[in-house]
Design a protein around this nucleic acid. Structure first.
Lengths: 119, 119
DNA sequence: CCCTTATTCAACCAAGTAGTTGACAATGCC
DNA sequence: GGCATTGTCAACTACTTGGTTGAATAAGGG
């Protein structure tokens, strides 16, 4: 699973990691600071940070024995672009369908049973 | 892992599933049609569709023995909002930092060793 | 009615993931 | 130098995931 988009989405698929990202918008923080709010071990948080780092969501510098974590929001653009592209395309298709239906002579009912999803 | 955002991000963390989403922007399709391009089994694709459905990315209607899959782009908004929010916050923080640095007397060099990441 | 088509369900497997604990590395402070 | 602090590495476990195959369900078409 090498591709950046998969890594990015996967990294943010975990609530703890999204929480960490939220926390980091306030400012850089050390692993210990980031781990404090959670009742999991420091090592677990360290692993989460590795996932975020590999996905390019955060970067880490070095300050003595501390490793401050910094939010790197560029990847967000990548995801947003992907999402926007297909949301837009889906919407356009929807609008075309609407337009088509508007030009149709009369109530040719759709082939699908539009209503229920499951018996 | 019940929360919608986690499910949505997780659903799109797989390249095959993103591919299916891309395909669906052209129009609704049956399971068989969606499975055709891939060399995995039909059942595997069926599973992918279940993941997408559970995440609210697609919906399925019924047309005889076929189950047409329809893209439901609303969840994209949820993700986009989350991403945009934190990207914006991160950027604002960055700008505040810039402004702060601009007002500082002189070249007080930062405490961090900014360059390398790993020895 | 049987048969074909379309799809899901069930059981299984290999690989990945999130968590654990314990040991080790890197650094600053006395 | 020795010790406290901060964080990572390694090994292990439980659970999830993406894939497989084979059987079952659903619906139409001779």
């Amino acid at each position: 699973m090498a591709d950046p988009l998969s890594q990015a989405f996967s990294a943010l698929a975990d609530p703890t990691r999204r929480d960490i990202v939220a926390r980091l918008t306030i400012g850089d923080a050390t692993v210990g600071e980031l781990a404090a709010p959670y009742d999991v071990s420091l090592q677990a948080v360290s692993k989460h940070l590795k996932v975020l780092e590999d996905a390019g969501v955060v970067s880490r510098t070095r300050d003595a024995q501390r490793r401050p974590v910094h939010l790197e929001a560029d990847v967000f653009d990548l995801m947003t672009k992907w999402l926007e592209r297909y949301r837009r395309q889906a919407q356009e298709r929807y609008e075309r369908l609407d337009a088509l239906l508007a030009t149709l002579p009369q109530g040719t009912p759709p082939t699908e049973g539009v209503s229920d999803d499951r018996p």
